[in-house]
Amino acid sequence: MCNHMVVDELDQDGVDRLFAALADRTRRDIVTRVLVREESVSALAERYDMSFAAVQKHVAVLERASLVTKRRHGRERLVRGDVGTIRTAARLLEEYEQVWRGRIDRLGDLLAEPHSPPHTPGDAP
Rank of each mutant, 00 (worst) to 15 (best):
R28D: 03
D13I: 14
D16W: 10
T26P: 06
I30D: 02
P114F: 13
A65E: 04
Q12D: 15
L67C: 05
R64C: 13
L111K: 05
Y48A: 06
E63I: 05
C2W: 12
D123Q: 09
V15F: 03
P117L: 09
M1R: 02
L44K: 00
D8I: 04
L18D: 04
R72C: 12
V83M: 03
P121V: 15
H73C: 02
K70W: 10
G14W: 01
A54V: 10
L92G: 04
Y96S: 03
R71H: 11
P125C: 14
T69L: 05
K70S: 09
T88H: 01
A43Y: 04
V79N: 00
L22E: 00
R47C: 03
R47A: 13
Q56M: 08
M50E: 02
S66K: 05
R27S: 06
E76K: 10
H58C: 05
H73Y: 12
N3I: 13
L35S: 12
T88V: 10
L35W: 03
E39P: 00
I30A: 00
G84M: 12
A53I: 14
M1K: 07
T69V: 05
T69Y: 07
D109T: 15
Q12V: 15
S66N: 01
G108D: 15
E46M: 11
A124C: 01
R25W: 07
V61I: 05
Q56F: 10
L44P: 00
E9Y: 11
V79S: 01
L93M: 12
T69K: 02
K57F: 15
K57P: 00
V34D: 05
L107N: 06
D13V: 11
V68D: 00
M50H: 09
V6A: 12
K57A: 15
T32F: 03
R72L: 08
T120I: 11
